[in-house]
Measured scan of single mutants.
Amino acid sequence: RQGFVPAAYVKKLDSGTGKELVLALYDYQEKSPREVTMKKGDILTLLNSTNKDWWKVEVN
């Protein structure tokens, strides 16, 4: 499932696989259909980080 999360809630990881991955630093509950819920410690695939406030991710 793809959607947006606050950029301040995730940290980029060095995956070494060519995929950009991020680590969820905090729990986040989606507040609109365009967002996704994540739990602290989740590893997500980063799809787009051009917006400084909201990053598009895919929940694996």
Rank of each mutant, 00 (worst) to 15 (best):
Y28R: 02
W54M: 05
N51Q: 09
L44C: 08
V10F: 05
S32L: 08
L13F: 11
M38L: 09
W55Q: 01
Y28H: 04
S15D: 13
V22N: 01
A8M: 12
K19D: 09
K31P: 05
N51C: 10
E58C: 09
V22P: 01
L23R: 09
A8V: 10
F4Q: 03
R34V: 11
K40F: 05
T50G: 09
T45C: 09
A7W: 01
N48G: 07
N51F: 08
K31Y: 05
E30A: 15
K40W: 04
P33R: 09
N60D: 12
D27H: 05
W55I: 04
Q2L: 07
T17E: 14
K40M: 08
K52F: 08
V5K: 00
L13K: 03
D42L: 04
V10L: 15
Y28M: 01
V59S: 12
E58Q: 10
I43F: 05
K56C: 15
K19W: 09
L46R: 01
K12G: 05
A8W: 10
N60P: 15
L46P: 01
G16L: 13
T50W: 08
K40Y: 05
E35D: 05
D27S: 08
R34A: 13
T37M: 05
M38F: 08
L46E: 01
K12L: 14
S49R: 08
R1W: 06
M38S: 00
Q2V: 13
D53I: 15
W55N: 01
G16P: 15
K31N: 09
L21S: 07
L23I: 15
P6H: 02
E35R: 05
K40D: 02
T45D: 06
L13W: 08
V57I: 07
L47G: 01
A24W: 01
K40Q: 12
I43M: 06
K39I: 08
L46V: 06
T50A: 10
D14C: 15
Q29P: 06
P33V: 09
K31V: 08
P33D: 13
K12S: 07
P33M: 09
V5M: 01
T50L: 10
V59L: 13
S32Q: 07
A8C: 13
L25W: 03
K12C: 09
N51P: 05
R34S: 13
G18P: 09
S32W: 07
E35Q: 11
G16T: 15
L25G: 02
K39M: 08
D14N: 13
S32T: 13
D42P: 01
D27N: 07
N60R: 12
G18D: 13
K11A: 10
L47P: 01
M38E: 00
V36M: 10
R1V: 08
E20G: 09
D53R: 13
R34C: 15
K31S: 09
K31H: 09
W54I: 03
S15G: 13
